[in-house]
Each structure stands twice: as structure tokens, then as C-alpha cells.
């Protein structure tokens, strides 16, 4: 079901406050009543200015192609993305290999302008194209016993040359709680700026969870497993004291090696000013209720 969450991409409009409030009401309605399909599309623009396409595609952490920020743009051309399928297994009614083309024929692609906050305290604003993860999970039929969703990136060291280094334990794996996965903000992105997903950004299909640090948004996904146990995640396995399972953007909880209170928007050159980091990356209204009663300091 597309258009459960709506924003507007015409960023050069100035946001009228009334319309912004309207969007919030829309969100509240969605969360509370699930009436999003009935809600009118928000008229106004978001006040976010998208980061330049060239910046989004030349500054990437995609360690499968190397550890430098420019390495993915240099090396990702080796990746072959056709044919592509996603194995969906575990606690689902219809497990199997889902060809990406079949999946896409059933989905409505939307545009979502999201803030993107890296755990390294830099940020961008990205106009993604994609569909809600929930729609894909519905295709496979999630069983009631499932509580978590595990994701896996392609492992193909011949094409993903960074996988020849022991930088991380390959393949990259990530996970979400089922309610996080089902949240209307959680996107399976197939493109950005209206173009097919650039290889360095996680072609052909990647996750985008805008209220979590970027490393949760796993790229080039080949497997999705529904499970009742919290799945292992790559950075948590690598440095458990620094990267937890939840990894929600939180200016109040520092990374052990740097503050998370502010971030550097990428693309502004030498004198780009830091901006304050927002709780849940600015999506507090939409997602805070998912963590009611949880100690976010412990569950970092």
C-alpha cells in the first residue's frame, strides 16, 4: 500500500507552517488510525534541501568496495546487478527467491525526501525512490511468530573487492525489529533523484531507515529472513561497545569516540557549519512511540 507517508519533493518552495502542521496531523492520523490512504497528500514542501546528486554518489561508506569515502564510486562499477533476486525465508508463509523484476511489478515507487545521518556525525538529505518494506514483507506473508527481520548484503568478492579485506566479517548483515520494519517510514529504496540506484549507493535495492544511523540501512540486499530472535548485525559484531542493535539517531547518547550532538552536512565545502542533530533524526513524532519505556542509553 503506497502513500502511507507523504512528503513533497519541490524543495525550493518555502514551507508554509499550516501545511507543515497538516503533514504532522497526517502522520498522527496514520500512526493512530491507519487512515493514511484516506488522507490527502500534503500540499507543501518539506523544508529540507536535498544534497547534490554528485555529493550523494561520491561520498559513500560502502566498505564492500573499500574503506575510503571515494572508493565505492571508484570500484562499484564492477558490481553486476542483473539478474537480481532476494531470498525471503524464515517465518514467512511464502518463502522463496523473489526476482527483483517480479517484486517491482507489484510495487508503487514513491519519492521520499529523507534526512540521512551517518554514525560518523555527517549528514545528507536524500531524495530516495522506493517502496515500503512492509509491502514486500506482506508479499511473503509474515507469520505471527516472527519478531525480527534480518537482512544480508550480496557476498561476491570478485566484484566487491573490499570483501577481500578482513575489515568486517562478510557478508554484511543487519536487522530490525518487526515493528520497525513495518513502519511506514522504512523504505526499500531502488533509486535516488529519480534514477536507478547508483551502484555505490547500494544498487539495485537497499534499505533506508531514516531515524537510524546510516549503517542500519543495508545495501545491495540479497536475503531477508524473518525470525523470532534478535539477529546479529555487522557493526555490533565488530565493535559491540560502539554500535548497538538499535542505533537510533540520538544527540543525547554519544558515540564513545565522538559527540552525536551535532553533525556536519556534507557538500558545503571548507566552512560548512555544523547543525544540531535531531532526536530520531527529526522523525521523533513518527517513531518515538516504538521505543516507549525503553532506555535508549542502554539500547543504543
Amino acid at each position: 500500500m503506497a502513500h502511507r507517508w507523504t512528503n513533497d519533493l519541490t524543495h525550493d518552495d518555502v514551507t508554509p507552517k499550516s501545511a507543515y502542521l497538516n503533514r504532522r496531523q497526517l502522520m498522527a492520523g496514520m500512526a493512530g488510525l491507519g487512515l493514511a490512504a484516506l488522507a490527502p497528500k500534503a500540499q507543501a514542501a518539506s523544508d529540507l534541501t536535498p544534497t547534490d546528486f554528485d555529493v550523494i554518489t561520491q561520498y559513500n561508506n560502502f566498505y564492500e568496495f573499500g574503506t575510503g569515502k571515494e572508493d565505492p564510486a571508484k570500484h562499484a562499477h564492477r558490481l553486476t546487478t542483473q539478474p537480481w533476486s532476494i531470498k525471503i525465508d524464515g517465518m514467512v508463509d511464502r518463502p522463496g527467491d523473489y526476482a527483483l523484476s517480479d517484486i517491482l511489478s507489484k510495487m508503487t515507487i514513491e519519492e521520499r525526501l529523507y534526512r540521512f545521518r551517518c554514525v560518523e556525525a555527517w549528514s545528507m538529505v536524500v531524495p530516495w525512490n522506493g517502496f515500503e518494506l512492509k509491502d514486500l514483507l506482506d508479499l511473503a506473508g509474515v507469520q505471527s511468530s516472527a519478531k525480527y527481520v534480518a537482512f544480508e548484503t550480496l557476498y561476491r568478492p570478485d566484484e566487491m573487492i573490499g570483501q577481500k579485506s578482513p575489515f568486517l566479517d562478510w557478508p554484511y548483515v543487519e536487522g530490525l525489529r518487526l515493528d520497525e520494519a513495518n513502519h511506514p517510514l522504512t523504505l526499500m529504496a531502488t533509486g535516488l533523484y529519480g534514477k536507478d540506484m547508483p551502484k555505490q549507493n547500494g544498487a539495485p535495492i537497499r534499505l533506508v531507515v531514516p531515524w537510524k544511523y546510516g549503517f542500519k540501512s543495508i545495501k545491495s540486499i540479497v536475503r531477508i529472513t524473518l525470525t523470532d530472535k534478535e539477529p546479529p548485525t555487522s557493526w555490533n559484531k565488530s565493535i559491540p561497545g560502539e554500535y548497538g542493535f538499535y542505533s537510533n539517531v540520538n544527540p543525547e547518547v554519544d558515540h564513545p569516540r565522538w559527540s552525536q550532538a551535532s553533525e556536519r552536512p556534507i557538500g558545503g565545502g571548507f566552512f560548512a557549519k555544523r547543525i544540531p542533530t535531531l532526536k530520531f533524526n527529526g522523525y521523533e513524532k513518527e517513531v518515538a512511540s516504538l521505543y516507549d519505556g525503553m532506555d535508549l542509553r542502554k539500547n543504543y
Binding site: Q58, Y59, K69, E70, W122, R264, I266, G269, F270, A272
Partner: peptide, 15 residues
């Protein structure tokens, strides 16, 4: 290089 794009899109970290 940082002012002319030679250090990539994040000249601060690069420098």
C-alpha cells in the same frame, strides 16, 4: 585543492 574540488566533497575531513 580543497577550494577547487580536488579533495572531494568533504575537504575538511580530507585535509
Amino acid at each position: 585543492a580543497g577550494f577547487t574540488g580536488g579533495l572531494g566533497v568533504d575537504p575538511v575531513k580530507a585535509m
